[in-house]
């Protein structure tokens, strides 16, 4: 997989407040990385396929990690997941679901669609910070890439 530099996280989140919280917490993680925020599933796909508003991008460069909400208007997180995991070029891209829902059906469906991980947004700000830090450390430092 051809990754862009530095370590890039594609954040797909329609709730602007939640996105802001995630971005702020990620800023505090002491490992070099960038965050690209898109507001819905449609924009995430545009980004990955370098089309529409992202047509200027080099489509061969992919983010290192996708952090995606499930419930979004138009194209839902599950639909994006299905597209990514069904595409030979994108399949290896780790997709972490980050959502408010802890409904069992959502968890099961996400894993059935080959999500790499499923996280429920903690209400506590410090907990969210710790979780995101662990997440970045894991995927950036520990996880073996292709």
């Amino acid at each position: 997989m051809n990754n862009q530099e530095p370590f890039t996280i594609l954040l797909v989140e329609d709730n602007m407040d939640h996105a802001e919280m995630v971005i702020r917490n990620l800023e505090d993680v002491p490992l070099a990385h960038t965050v690209v925020h898109v507001e819905n599933g449609e924009a995430a796909l545009d980004y990955l396929y370098a089309r529409g508003p992202f047509s200027h991008r080099d489509p061969s460069l992919l983010p290192h990690l996708m952090l995606m909400d499930l419930r979004m208007p138009k194209v839902s997180g599950l639909e994006v997941l299905a597209q990514v995991k069904g595409d030979d070029r994108l399949r290896a891209l780790p997709v972490v679901i980050l959502t408010t829902s802890d409904a069992e059906a959502d968890v099961a469906q996400a894993y059935a669609s080959h999500a790499n991980s499923y996280l429920t947004k903690p209400a506590d700000f410090a907990e969210l910070g710790q979780m995101l830090k662990d997440l970045v450390v894991y995927w950036l430092n520990w996880n073996r890439k292709i």
Binding site: N15, D17, H18, M21, R24, T100, K121, A123, D124, F125, A126, L128
Partner: peptide
């Protein structure tokens, strides 16, 4: 609620 708790923490 997550927004409220989160930003209160922030």
């Amino acid at each position: 609620l997550i927004t409220i708790r989160g930003f209160a923490g922030a």
